[in-house]
Design a protein around this nucleic acid. Structure first.
Length: 674
DNA sequence: ATACATACC
DNA sequence: GACTGGTATGTAT
């Protein structure tokens, strides 16, 4: 959407259009402690009346010294280092090789020129300050006051009143409040935006059935076909009226069509949109920003017009060239698109073929003319920011929560995936990702979790004995494929378990969690009972948890995969996990893997069922047995309030305690806390 | 294949 | 005090 993080105000760029370089220089640390990336980002449009000095100072004052700011400094250093490395590389070139590269670049440019295409009319539609506009529409009292949509942690967008104060999308609410104490922050209402977006799309589809929405508030259209058909339209087909019945007839040119589209959007939604019309998507996108808000701009469909447009266009305006690329390019004197051409010899030597080709295309004003939307998603993920979590038990529980959420989403789209990626962000804002690919794609929570859990466990161990202190965790599934049904290996396990179930001691003990948010998990049906299969309900949920079973409640450690007998309550169990993390390493896991050769019938150490299945399936089974209850149990309020400590004892297990009688189940433990 | 960075909304 | 969440892709190893 146009209120994206690196974007800004929407007065015409007239002033800035021809002074990119100045802007770049001016951006460097004024009042921001020298940290360019902290500064208000105004490189895409003029923010004429803004007191940038003051705004940057406020942002800096609010941020300096924070963990966030320190991380930004770190990243800034990295970028500087990259620029320095680039500089060094540049110095190692001699003029002759640059000339040679220029010739090579010219050959590539000729090929690009060959592909230049003016046959398509591409339109980019972009709703103005979308979320804010919707909120203002539905609550007129917000209309003439500075307002933003989002929360105190982060804003999604702001209205134009607020932008005058420097309040913008991707700015934390508390800083925005500092910049503009009267700012009203309205919580996001996505359902509403989705509905409005749907209304807009309905209109757009009439001009291009293959229209490509990029988000709730923007879309690309190829109206070539419509323009051709429109020649035969009668007056009525080009006539639309306002709610008041006022009529308006539109012409047959691209600009007329876009006027019509924008008119219809406004009539239908009471919201304004801006639009760009150009021979390709790259240019159309830039154009839609040019006369924003509530305006449109067309680039004539000939080479000269395109080259004129691109000549002084700051590279930062181009979709795909962000803050960092802009800095890197700026460091070698590339600010406008024509600079990309001037420096093509150098760029060819510095950048990869992909990047260089992209730069050349940009310099020539050539972009994609095909608005086909790639309908195959590549990945799906869930991530959450939270107040610091550092205790392993809570980290594992959070991980499980995310896996559950992700699987729910996967199932909505009937997808399964092979590669699982765990993402963590420490309280210092350092982000790490760890990935592991399975042999087969899955959409099974237990299998997903068992993998994510291993990745998390490794991270916890890696920083041991220090706790892993996180502010965010995320789980992603990639390598996706459609989830066909019965071929899933999990089914095999389901069936096996069901077969043997009657003879087995039930694998799961009574499960109780003090945390409300896990109650639903506790109540959910046994994941190993597949209702779609006959006999699936032979053991309804209520039955397994007999009093006998409860008496056999076991605490399963997510680290060592054992259920130490002496863990009779959550406190001792937590101590066990901590010790376990401290004392064990991945050797144990390696051993286990070796044990499991091909074609090896293996007895689940938890539920005693003998399984003969692929390693991943077996692991899934064991992990399910191990974790179904354990992860939840350890999250009680009691456990959370237990001070975190690691004893230095040699044994990974807590001191042995006498086994309690049947009444000392987790359930009872919580019903009558000590 | 994995890790990390960049970019966009 | 306090700085998102989801997806794609490029780059390096």
């Amino acid at each position: 959407m146009e209120e994206e993080g690196d974007e800004e105000g929407e007065e015409q760029w007239d002033q800035i259009w021809n002074q990119g370089e100045q802007d770049y220089v001016a951006a460097a640390g004024s009042n921001t402690g020298g940290l360019d990336r902290m500064a208000l980002n105004d490189n895409k449009a003029g923010m004429g009346n803004l007191d940038k000095e003051r705004i940057n100072k406020v942002i800096y004052e609010m941020s300096k010294g924070s963990k966030y700011y320190e991380n930004e400094q770190r990243k800034e250093e990295q970028v500087k280092a990259k620029i320095a490395a680039q500089h060094k590389q540049i110095q190692s070139f001699d003029a002759r090789e640059i000339e040679k590269s220029e010739l090579q670049a010219d050959a590539m440019l000729a090929a690009i020129e060959e592909m230049r295409d003016f046959s398509r009319t591409i339109v980019h539609i972009d709703m103005d300050a979308f979320y804010a506009a919707v909120e203002m529409r539905d609550n007129p009292s917000l209309k003439n006051i500075p307002m933003a949509v989002g929360g105190s942690a982060m804003l999604s967008t702001s209205n134009y009143e607020a932008r005058r104060f420097g309040v913008r999308a991707a700015m934390p609410g508390f800083i925005a409040k500092k910049l503009c104490p009267d700012l009203v922050i309205v919580p996001t209402n996505f359902d509403k935006y989705r509905q409005v977006s749907k209304d807009v799309k309905e209109i757009l589809l009439q001009y291009d059935p293959n229209m490509c929405p990029m988000s709730l508030d923007e879309a690309y259209l190829d109206i070539t076909q419509h323009l051709a058909e429109r020649k035969n339209f009668d007056a009525e087909q080009k006539t639309f009226r306002t709610a008041d019945g006022e009529q308006r007839m539109f012409g047959v040119d691209a600009e007329d069509v876009v006027q019509e589209i924008r008119f219809r959007i406004e009539v239908k939604t009471q919201l304004t949109a801006s639009a760009g019309i150009a021979p390709n998507m790259m240019l159309a996108k830039v154009c839609s920003d040019f006369n924003k808000p509530n305006g449109q701009y067309l680039i004539p469909f000939n080479r000269q017009a395109v080259m004129d447009f691109v000549k002084d266009l700051p590279v930062r305006k181009v979709c795909g060239i962000g803050r960092v690329s802009c800095s890197m390019l700026g460091a070698m004197g590339v600010v406008t698109c024509s600079d990309l051409f001037r420096k093509r010899g150098l760029l060819l030597k510095l950048y990869s073929a992909i990047s260089f080709n992209y730069f050349l295309r940009v310099s020539a004003g050539v972009g994609s003319t095909s608005v086909q939307r790639g309908d195959d998603r590549k990945s799906m993920s869930t991530e959450r920011t939270f107040a610091e979590i550092n205790r392993p038990a809570e980290l594992f529980a959070k991980c499980y929560e995310l896996c559950e959420a992700l699987v729910e989403d996967l199932k909505k789209e009937n997808l399964k995936g092979k590669t699982i990626t765990l993402k963590i962000k420490t309280i210092k804002y350092i982000v790490r990702t760890k990935a592991h690919s399975l042999l087969n794609a899955t959409q099974d929570v237990q299998l997903l979790y068992s993998t994510a859990r291993d990745l998390l466990r490794t991270e916890i161990r890696l920083c041991s004995p220090e706790p892993l202190r996180l502010r965010l965790m995320g789980v992603r599934m990639s390598n996706l494929s459609p989830a066909s049904k019965s071929s899933d290996t999990q089914i095999t396990i389901h069936q096996m378990l069901k077969k043997s179930r009657g003879e087995q001691k039930l694998p799961f003990g009574a499960v109780v969690s003090g945390a409300d948010r896990f109650l639903s998990f506790m109540e959910q049906k046994d994941p190993y009972v597949d209702e779609d299969l006959p006999g699936a309900n032979a053991f309804p949920d209520e039955v397994p948890h007999t009093s006998t079973e409860k008496d056999n409640t076991e605490f399963i450690c997510p680290v060592c995969d054992e259920h130490p007998e002496d863990c009779v309550d959550l406190r001792t169990f937590n101590e066990h996990i901590d010790l376990c993390l401290f004392h064990t390493n991945d050797e144990k896991k390696e051993e286990k893997v070796e044990e499991k050769g091909e074609d090896f019938a293996f007895k689940c150490p938890v539920c005693c069922v003998v399984l003969k299945s692929p390693l991943d399936s077996f692991n899934a089974h064991v992990d399910a047995c191990l974790n179904r209850s354990a992860i939840k149990e350890i999250l009680s309020e009691e456990s959370l309030s237990t001070p975190r400590k690691r004893s230095s004892g040699a044994s990974p297990f807590p001191a042995k305690k006498p086994k309690t009688d049947g009444r000392h189940t987790l359930l009872n433990y919580f019903k009558s806390p000590k």
